[in-house]
Structures are given as structure tokens and as C-alpha cells.
Design a protein around this nucleic acid. Structure first.
Lengths: 340, 340
DNA sequence: GTGAAAGCGCTAACAA
DNA sequence: TTGTTAGCGCTTTCAC
């Protein structure tokens, strides 16, 4: 095990040429190379099963042809779908993509950013946990970064986002149209996490627009853990006559936990409680009942993020100012709010 | 943009020491270093915001302290859960983990293996698509590899697997106990993909053990695409009196597609058709009806894969022969097969 | 305690 | 058309 791997020197020696010639071959600079040399090198490479060392190459070239994507939580279908989009785009562009999962932990995100920078990735796509803004701002200053979903205030980087205010508005409008007046919203801690703030803001605005009073007790800020959500749900139900008739889950995971909690409490959806969620996912239609959501175009967002990043990588001097691309979410009516 | 990053030389110059001294600092070799030097270097590093170049370091050290995991399909919760397990283990061990998604495409898997090898990762965890056995065999000869879920015949590497025959047996036993005699199995193309073969084999064996004849028409080999599965389901239903009363989905994605197809055909589960799946996932209990499955310990498998790999990386000479770790799957009864 | 020098595997001028 | 040379940024003996 661990035999010394073959290097360019051995290839050169065996082919009877210098290593620069082999290097030319590797970099497909064939113009000034005789077909014989070329063939000979090819043969030796095959014979020795030579694989160029990308570390050495990148060290010299100062480019790794690699971009990395760090997602906040790989268990979230939103993240994996973004990855799929980014991947397809990178492949078309001949860039390598490597992935990292911050697991919703700012510390891990920080470690990954530092590791990837140390490894000299050419650029970064970050679906940030939201607690490393200072670091990200600093990174943006020297390495191309595209933020996806979450913004980082004052960071000079491109951002791919969704209009969360509009999404919440659509959710509330739908609920109000169905006759709901007392609507609760479950959100993960939202301060300083732009999309969450937007969604909360949009929720409050929409309520106001419909002349509904905002009851702070109906805005539940909670961790994603199922037992926390179940706990809050029980408290909500215990309000008796004042209990909401509909709940809005601010993301995927929260919405699923809401449905679990409701099932555990034997509360029928939508009969006893309507449920709507932010963000769609593959099997949302399989759930009992199929859940009505405001969908985000995750795949397109991932692809766009990669495209924007790669463009910036190759733009050189012609770099434009960082831009924000905002997608509009879309209401998908299923059954969890009752018939429309 | 792209200011020249600061190097060890600049740190050395500014601190008034040689670069070897700085290198000692970076590698925490403080024994033979005066506290003053140490403090001075620390100060300069902070001031310059110096970040060591991992490429250069790894080039010299011939180790990257990085392992990579390639999963067959990142949209599959089984894969992401494996990743979570591997991640936690790597973090504890101080190794970096990077991820790649083969997207069920052998070509992509091959490209990733080659890229990662070129990048000199220390080891590889592969949940293979099943069509790169020759390559993997070759890679194993010089780089530590741990295969997870799928075996590669004759490859000299550690493997983490689940007893698929036993899992299928448990599924069939459960169904038979509930009175089913005509059971169909949906599987993705299974030839040469070890866990799928095992599951099919286990299915046939279990049928035989119960004195049930195996009807080849009830073993449906199909792509995962929902329309394909819906197509086959329609054909099954069209058998009228001969139609099966239960279906067994050979994995996650197939099981979900089966349920979608059944919903589309308005066939009530479990009343008109029982459904059981291989592999559990987070929200299986939220589905209508909550689906009964034979679960695999995905998180543990991921953690074990990383642990085995890291052990091999640090074992050096003392390397044992490659081993196969086999987990036993576990039946989780929910509602999709009817009351028990 | 610290530094000088050699070199990891590759690329990129520039010579020849 | 091909080879020589000088590094890329770091680590690692081995001297001092």
C-alpha cells in the first residue's frame, strides 16, 4: 500500500522527453508537438497509469477549477435541490463542485469556509446559517462568493434570493380567502436571517392589509426540534376559543413538524386546523393531507448561483457590481387548507 | 480584487524570523521556541490575516487530511443521512469531509473519483452507482476506500452493508402474517447492484419459505421515474382477480413513487393494496398512510464508514484485511399494511 | 532556539 | 519542436 505515485518526471524519462513537453501534453498544447512525441507520451501515460497531481498543478496555476457549495442543512430537501441545480451548471461549465454541510451550525460553517479557502477553491456558494456575516464580508473581499437564499448585510457579493414578503403575502391571502381570521405563524429564530425576517414581515404586512390585528402570541419563534413545536402547538390549542384556525410554517422542516404535532394531538387537518407552508418539496403531495405551500424554485436558484459565480470567475476585469437576483415564490394549492 | 494573498515569507519577514520558524509555529511545534518569538509570530499572523495555503502544505506533506464521500443520489434521504453520520465522525477525528453527488450516473461518479484522486484526498467513501467496479478495484489498490451500501465484487476494500435478504424476508413475513398471498415487488434495475440483488433474492426466498409460488410478472424491474412506476402499477391493477394485494418497494424512492401511483389511481392503502418499503426516512410517518418499512441504520452506517476509513488511514503498517460490516435492518410497523 | 537549503510535482517563460 | 530554469508556498532535515 501507498506505493509512490508516478510523477511527471518518470513519464518524461520513460518517454525520453523533458517534463515541459509532458506538461504541454497534459495541458493540451499540441500545436508545437510532433505527432510522434504526442503518441509516445500518451502511450507512457497509459502504461504507467499516470495521474497528474492536482495540488501541484493548482499551486502553480493559482486556480483549482473548483467551486464549493456550503449548505445550511443537507437534510433539507431545499438544500439538496439547490445542490442539484448548481451541480448541473458546473458540469456544463467544466468546473468541479464540492459540497459541505454546515448542519445549521455557524461554527461548522466557519470551519468549512476556512478549510475551503485554505484549499484555494476558486469560488464559494453559501447558503449561510446566518451567523457568519463578518467572516463572509471579509471573504467576499478577495474571493468570489454567491450567497443563496440568505443575504449577508453589507457583503459585496452576488445573492440569489426569493421574495419572502411576497410569499408570505400569498400564503396569508390564500388563508384569508378561505375565511381564516386567526392565523398563527411558526418560524425558526428569525432575527438577522434575512429570508426569515422577510417572511415574518410579509406575514404581518399581509395581516394588516386584510385588516387583521397582529397578535404577537400567534407568532411562534421556535427551534426546529419536533418536541418544541409540539409544545407550542399544545399551548396554541389550549387557547380554546382564541385558538387559531390556521398555521403557517415558515419553512419545510417547520411545516413537517407542525403536521407531526397536529397528528399527535389528533387535530384534523384541515378540518380543525388549516396548514400552509413556505417551500415545496417532492413528497409534499404524499403527506396526509397533501400540503398547500408557497414554493421556491430551488433547482433554478442553485443553477443560477453557479452560473453567476462562474461568470464572475471568468469575467476578470469586466466584473460588474454584485447583484441580487430575486425569484418570486408560487402558491401551490393542495389540500391542507381545505377546498378552495 | 485578487490581491496577492500573504505567504509564509511575508509573515517571516515581518516577524523578523525565518520561514522555518513560522512553519514550526503553524505546526504547533512550540517546544523549541521562545515565548517571545511565538507571540510575535502570532501577532503578525493576526495582523496580516495570514492563511496558510493548504495546497502547498499538502503537496509537501503528501496528506490532505481530507476524505471525500461520493453518494449515488443526494436527493435520497438515505444518502443524506449517511452523510450526516460520516460528517460527525470526521469532525470528531479532525478530518475534513467533502461531498460529491453522482446523481445516479456512473460517468459522473467516475469523474468525481478521478477528480478527488487528483486532488489527493486521503481516502474515499463511496456509495457507488454500481457501474464502476473495475475503476474502484484499481483505486482500492493504492488509496483507502470504504464502500457503503453497495459492494464491488473483488475490490479489496472495507464495506458497510445491510443484510438485504433478511430485510426482504422481514417484509414478506409481515405481509404474509397479515394474510397476503399475492405480493408484488418493485425494484430498480438490480443486476450487478449488490443490495438490490440481495433484496430480490430475499424476496424470492421468503416467498418460497411460505410455500408461495414466485410469479415473475410480480417482480417489476423499473426506473425510478414516477410515470414508469405508475405505468407498471396500472398494468398490475389490470390483472383483475390476479392482481396482487400487497406491494413491496425495494427502496425509498420507489416506495414513494408507488404511493403516488396508487393515489393517482385512487386505490386505497392499505384497504385495496398494502404497501411496505425497504428503508425508512424522516417523514415516512407523515405520509398517508404512514408507511410500514424495513429500516436501515443509515446514520450509523455513515459514521461507521468514516470510522473504518480513518482507522485505516492512521493504521499504517498494521492494516488488517478489508472487512465487511453488515447491519441488520429492522421492521417498523406503521399503517400502510393494515392493522397488525 | 533558530535558520539555510533542498525539494514536494507541476507550469511557464525563454532558450536552443 | 523541445529542453532549461526558476519558481508556486510550504515542510523538514540538519547546522549553527
Amino acid at each position: 500500500m501507498q506505493v509512490m505515485p508516478v510523477t511527471i518526471n518518470e513519464v518524461a524519462a520513460k518517454a525520453g522527453v523533458s517534463k515541459s513537453t509532458v506538461s504541454c501534453y497534459l495541458n493540451e498544447k499540441f500545436e508545437a508537438m510532433s505527432p510522434e512525441t504526442r503518441a509516445r507520451i500518451a502511450a507512457v501515460i497509459a502504461e504507467l497509469d499516470y495521474r497528474p497531481n492536482a495540488l501541484a498543478r493548482s499551486l502553480k496555476q493559482k486556480r483549482t477549477h473548483t467551486i464549493a457549495a456550503i449548505v445550511a442543512n443537507i437534510l433539507n430537501p431545499f438544500s439538496t435541490t439547490i445542490i442539484r441545480g448548481a451541480e448541473d451548471c458546473c458540469q456544463k461549465a467544466g468546473m468541479n463542485l464540492i459540497l459541505c454541510n454546515a448542519d445549521d451550525k455557524p461554527d461548522k460553517e466557519k470551519e468549512y469556509i476556512e478549510m475551503l479557502l485554505a484549499k484555494q477553491v476558486d469560488g464559494l456558494i453559501i447558503n449561510t446559517t446566518g451567523s457568519n456575516n463578518a467572516l463572509i464580508r471579509e471573504v467576499c473581499a478577495h474571493t468570489p462568493v454567491v450567497l443563496i437564499d440568505r443575504k449577508a448585510p453589507e457583503a459585496a457579493c452576488d445573492t440569489i434570493a426569493v421574495n419572502g414578503r411576497d410569499g408570505s403575502r400569498q400564503a396569508v391571502d390564500h388563508l384569508v380567502k378561505l375565511g381564516h381570521r386567526r392565523i398563527a405563524m411558526f418560524t425558526l429564530p428569525y432575527r438577522n436571517i434575512s429570508p426569515r425576517e422577510d417572511r415574518v414581515l410579509g406575514f404581518q404586512e399581509a395581516l394588516a392589509r386584510h385588516g387583521l390585528e397582529f397578535d404577537p402570541e400567534l407568532l411562534i419563534e421556535t427551534e426546529a426540534a419536533e418536541d418544541r413545536i409540539a409544545f407550542h402547538m399544545r399551548a396554541l390549542v389550549a387557547r380554546g376559543i382564541l385558538r387559531p384556525t390556521a398555521v403557517f410554517g415558515a419553512n419545510n422542516l417547520v411545516t413537517m413538524a407542525i403536521i407531526k404535532a397536529l397528528k399527535a394531538l389528533n387535530i384534523a387537518v384541515p378540518r380543525d386546523m388549516a396548514v400552509i407552508g413556505f417551500d415545496d418539496w417532492d413528497w409534499a403531495a404524499l403527506i396526509d393531507p397533501p400540503v398547500t405551500v408557497v414554493a421556491q424554485p430551488a433547482y433554478e436558484m442553485g443553477a443560477k448561483a453557479a452560473a453567476v459565480l462562474i461568470k464572475r470567475l471568468t469575467a476578470g476585469k469586466a466584473a460588474r457590481k454584485p447583484a441580487v437576483v430575486t425569484y418570486k415564490p408560487q402558491l401551490i394549492v393542495r389540500k391542507s387548507c381545505g377546498e378552495t
